[in-house]
Design a protein around this nucleic acid. Structure first.
Lengths: 157, 157
DNA sequence: GTTTTGGTACTCGGATACGTTATGTCCGAGTAAGTGCGG
DNA sequence: CCGCACTTACTCGGACATAACGTATCCGAGTACCAAAAC
């Protein structure tokens, strides 16, 4: 899994606390990340419809909808793509008794088992929203949201 | 996920049917795979203790124990490594209020949620053995085992 | 004082290099079987 | 006829190239704000 997923997840939680638009450069300096690269990742989230980008001064990125309606799976899929990690290349077609016209992604026992496992994975991620994460953090560290907001303001830099 | 995982899984199922040792070259030509590269993958399975390799004529690879005691997870871990796909790099340490001495893999809400999802994935894979896969195939395609055995024999080539 | 107009600084967005990992290939070490010779 | 030693062919095992992808960076397009000038 790509490194950018971790950055994007944390940035999305921070955006949920921020409210208004925040430039990528400010999100990046929160964790000492390469700003230009984080920007690239957030662009993918914009293309997926999770974020809204606004140019110019006072611009940046903001969530496109309520944090409770954005799941971890949404973020992961936006960056990693919709296809499964395990890709069935239908090698059984070349084997003995292989049917060239059969889609082995739906018939190969190996492929089906791997898909079932990934489905369980996606189910867990889909059941957890950005708001859930934020709530967890607020429970164990109530001052975190305010600290993040302070750090994201145009501040003294 | 690596391509070799698919090859290794199918090869292991075929080894379960074969019984005796089968050289990598013969397993490879079953699906028109690059023999040397498949050999490389099987070596990882040997290092993980899933296969036993025997050199010389009539040699090859064979399962080290009963197919019912080898799970899909065993094969995947042998090739992909034991670490999670999502790796928490503890970026919160650099953030505001970050504790340099805290292991954020066990405290960061994002990391915990991702781990929970991967745990569900591993649970599914651990619950499915090579014998289960073989049984599924035999149910839908009873002649497959014999066909594989015939193809794996020293044959006419 | 109000409106307009030009400039300026800031932000995203995509195009461009770099390093690492996955992929693929090759040759040498080791081994068991087969063969020929000697007893 | 039986046993032994040599040769041979076959297999794994790791070291070596190649290609693809993830990572990182930079510069241009667009936009809102601000200031200055004109009315």
């Amino acid at each position: 899994m790509r490194q950018g997923v971790e950055w994007a997840l944390h940035s999305c939680v921070n955006l949920a606390w921020a409210g208004g638009p925040v430039p990528a450069s400010r999100l990046a300096e929160l964790y000492a990340l390469p700003a230009a690269y984080l920007n690239k990742q957030l662009q993918s989230l914009v293309r997926a419809g999770l974020l809204i980008s606004v140019s110019g001064p006072q611009g940046g990125f903001r969530l496109s909808r309520s944090p409770s309606t954005i799941s971890l799976l949404d973020v992961v899929v936006a960056l990693e793509g919709p296809e499964d990690a395990f890709r069935c290349t239908r090698i059984l077609r070349n084997g003995p008794g292989g049917d060239p016209d059969l889609d082995y992604r739906d018939h190969c026992a190996v492929s089906l088992s791997m898909r079932r496992a990934e489905l369980a994975w996606r189910h867990e991620l889909a059941a957890r929203s950005l708001a859930d994460i934020a709530a967890d953090v607020e429970r164990t560290n109530p001052e975190a949201p305010q600290r993040v907001r302070d750090a994201l303001l145009p501040g003294p830099s």
